[in-house]
Design a protein around this nucleic acid. Sequence first.
DNA 1: AATGAATGAGATTTCATTCAT
DNA 2: CATGAATGAAATCTCATTCAT
Lengths: 201, 201, 201, 201
Amino acid sequence: MVKAERRRTESPEVRRAQILEAAKSCFRKVGFHETRVAEIAELAGVSVGLVYQYFPGKEALIAAIVAEDMHSQMRELEHALDAGQGNAADVIEHLTKSLRAMILDRGRTALMIEIAAETARSDKIKALARSIQAEASESLRDRLSRLIPTGMSASELEVRLHLLSGLVTGAGIQFYSRPELDADLLFKLAERAARNILAPL
Amino acid sequence: MVKAERRRTESPEVRRAQILEAAKSCFRKVGFHETRVAEIAELAGVSVGLVYQYFPGKEALIAAIVAEDMHSQMRELEHALDAGQGNAADVIEHLTKSLRAMILDRGRTALMIEIAAETARSDKIKALARSIQAEASESLRDRLSRLIPTGMSASELEVRLHLLSGLVTGAGIQFYSRPELDADLLFKLAERAARNILAPL
Amino acid sequence: MVKAERRRTESPEVRRAQILEAAKSCFRKVGFHETRVAEIAELAGVSVGLVYQYFPGKEALIAAIVAEDMHSQMRELEHALDAGQGNAADVIEHLTKSLRAMILDRGRTALMIEIAAETARSDKIKALARSIQAEASESLRDRLSRLIPTGMSASELEVRLHLLSGLVTGAGIQFYSRPELDADLLFKLAERAARNILAPL
Amino acid sequence: MVKAERRRTESPEVRRAQILEAAKSCFRKVGFHETRVAEIAELAGVSVGLVYQYFPGKEALIAAIVAEDMHSQMRELEHALDAGQGNAADVIEHLTKSLRAMILDRGRTALMIEIAAETARSDKIKALARSIQAEASESLRDRLSRLIPTGMSASELEVRLHLLSGLVTGAGIQFYSRPELDADLLFKLAERAARNILAPL
DNA sequence: AATGAATGAGATTTCATTCAT
DNA sequence: CATGAATGAAATCTCATTCAT
């Protein structure tokens, strides 16, 4: 007769994470706009109302996911920089090493596509992306500057990193929609191209 | 103030093109799902009802755009192959030459993102994309095979072309969301990477 | 190269009949409100525009069908009265003889149901039905009066005829929706009930 | 001017009943297809959205009404059978006694006409009607069999009951569209015909 | 007289968001 | 803190009717 212990109060952080995780999962599967708030709530195991207590609306949820994803990318880059300890060759090594995993991770790609699409059309998300971007540049500036013995300017390095990021996304999209492609070959070519992108002109 | 000629009968081809063009324009600006059929109709200068006489629904409109875009890409590739006349270096030259235009064309990129996003989640669109893809492979097969003097297999060439396509898309996305990047440098690096992607291992 | 002789001008009567016939057929199959004007036009082999040249609108088409049907019923009754030549027993004989055909005619029943439904809700159709009804009563009055040797008043006879008509409709509806019923038995019982309805109290 | 209590939460049963009742009322007045979901919602005092939370669509609403009506008819018949306690004459008495009420109930007739019309054209409703019918036959089978001392087979009794039901519907339709008819006479004749229908051949 | 492309009002349905409990 | 019933604005799609040809 015990009513199965619903209405369990959880710590706010746990709740937020639960909801965000559910949202991310839905977004990956069907995209931002095709995801219903009710589905997110259900997957998170909470009521719709509670979702609105943690996030002012669906857009905020999207924004949170975008922010989270961009921050995690930034952290990856930071990590590669730190691991390479100022040695350009080592940094490149670290970056290319994670390429394969990224390209093969269909969930990540799905989310990247969504983020790209959303950034392309929502001004609010666009602004958010810009600000995170700026923050990232700021935060990485000196770590990056230490990498430039070859006379590569910070802005040039930035362009290269963006192109590299583009290559990964693009390769991911191709692999996403045509999984029958030879993944090993794709990866080998992508890795070579990545080194090429980072190589001095 | 001019209410323009109302109820002007046009040839089916013209109407279809009008509607499709309007749809494409809307899709570029706000994406597939954010575009209202009423907006498309208005931009095309026709009534909502007429849109439905040419396309059974919004999804058909999306499908038509996807198909058109994929066909136009195929035609571009065909053109490069024909122009290069069996000479691999020439073909590469032709392909890389159009890179810049593609990367800088923000409208094209916006549509590519939408198509990628839609292909990632709609099974119907996914199937359509696959079938066009298959058709394209079929149709380009012998033109491609003539290009392979260096012992590159057809499937290997296909992987390279896909990666190339991914690079263009990815670079476009980066440039799309960060127009402040140095376009010339981006392009120069992309071109070099493109050659690298097509170069023998 | 001869364009297959479309746009054939027909006599107005023929056209009207064509359209009306097509309408009736559609109405029987899917009902008044579920029938699209375009379907009627197609079945009649004419354009939608032409339908509107013969009938001011869909409602007029419905009205025409209702009128036609009521008139045909009136004619049937007239015929029975004339055939019975003032002899009550003969008239009853004639009426019950057509019972079976009516009950078994699913097309007729479908139309009757539609007419009943429409009369129940459209004021315009209700008025039309009333006026035809009045006209019929008027026109049959003396033929009916000659039938009343047994001291049955005209209005009493009218009630009986209506109940008889109701029996036929009701039996038709039952048979329509449950064709697995034993038709012979149903008919035999209906016939006996019909005689009972017309028998003096 | 009183905006009434908004957003009053009610028990599901109450809400369902409210909506169903409103729907029935609308259907009676203007028919299934002429009734707008918005009207039903308004009459029920709820929002359109809530109607869709209880019924997946308008068709489900129609189906629910059809089912409810058929079940109530079945219950009436059951009741007559139980009240008559195996005595045929008593059952007939009970059945004919409710005839008058049925024939005079214009609301009931309006709904019956709608149901007949809908059953005639919607395959889904047709199937529903059949299944309820089958269920009813099943459930009444032994109660009916106890009634057959005179050697009347179950299927014969079924035909008679259907014809009886048809008579009621038909008489109702007649009375519905011509309320000026002498109701007492109509009823007296209908009652006599009803006994006739149930009488052994 | 005949056509059918074009119109647009209006119906059904969905879903983000609110708020009484 | 948590719920989910309730809301209603807005989107898709249909189809009777019109009218240029």
